[in-house]
């Protein structure tokens, strides 16, 4: 039986502490603090301009914070301040223990090289040097994200939008990351394709015990994927809690407005 109360799971993986970012006098993100535990899915919801994408960039070390800090528990068990990591370390972290799924797959994939190489790149980056094994791993991952292995040598520009997004996910997961950032992963997709992707993500996240920070404006996505929700408005976290609690029993006026704005299915 999987024990979620073990010590390992009891230590946070990612800690944001008083995180702020301002552009001149405009505060894009104000004083955000939270802890993310292994296997936990946190959804950041809010409308465009609420600061959720800025927060994602701060958390993933792509943007320097104006105040506060982000720390991450590395694979060796030591929790370290991301800003204090060297660039080499940070980049290594980014392509091994972390994943980043972009809304637009073209941003996260090499569109001109084959699907197999797209998936294999991270393995080669950490020193895999056996073509057969790299290809085997790539095929395995394509299967897991429901891409026909016969398409392994095709470039993603010949793929449909949904396939590209699934390929991007495979490319991110191949090194067994513990934390994956997702920026509106279902944003540009048709509704039916969205459902399939969400279901796939949901299974992978549970199976691999991934910690996820997912930015979305779609509350249905948050409900389906996340354990916890943070509602952002004007760069501030205005409400946070269990996903079903926040969505079924919203307290803040803005959250109530968000929830009541969902069209009935």
């Amino acid at each position: 039986m999987a024990d979620f109360d073990t010590l390992e799971a009891d230590r946070p993986l990612l800690i944001a502490d008083g995180l702020s970012k301002s552009y001149g006098r405009i505060a894009a993100c104000r004083d955000v603090s939270f802890s993310l535990y292994p296997g936990e899915v946190l959804a950041i919801v809010g409308e465009s301009g609420s600061g959720k994408s800025t927060l994602l960039q701060l958390l993933s070390g792509q943007l320097a914070a104006s105040g506060g800090q982000v720390s991450y528990r590395m694979r060796d068990g030591v929790t370290r301040d991301l800003a204090a990591l060297g660039e080499a370390e940070r980049r290594l972290l980014f392509r091994t223990d972390w994943g980043f799924v972009h809304q637009d797959p073209a941003q996260g994939l090499r569109m001109a090289v084959s699907a197999g190489a797209n998936v294999g790149e991270r393995l080669m980056a950490v020193g895999w040097n056996h073509y057969g094994r790299i290809r085997e791993s790539a095929s395995d991952w394509l299967t897991r994200v429901e891409i026909d292995v016969a398409r392994i040598d095709d470039a993603p520009r010949t793929y449909s939008g949904g396939m590209r997004q699934r390929l991007q996910i495979a490319r991110n997961l191949v090194t067994g990351p513990r934390l994956v950032f997702m920026d509106e992963p279902t944003g540009g997709l048709d509704v039916s394709v969205q459902a399939r992707l969400l279901d796939l993500l949901r299974n992978l996240v549970a199976e691999l015990h991934l910690a996820v920070v997912i930015v979305t404006h779609d509350l249905a996505v948050a409900r389906l994927l996340s354990h916890r929700v943070m509602v952002m408005k004007g760069g501030r976290v205005i409400e946070t809690g269990l996903t079903d609690q926040v969505l079924d029993d919203p307290r803040e006026p803005y959250t109530q407005l968000l929830v009541s704005s969902i069209l009935p299915p």
Binding site: L242, D244, Q245, D248, D249, R251
Partner: peptide, 9 residues
């Protein structure tokens, strides 16, 4: 019931 489940605060 929802309060017992933690669904309602």
């Amino acid at each position: 019931l929802k309060m017992i489940f933690g669904n309602y605060r």
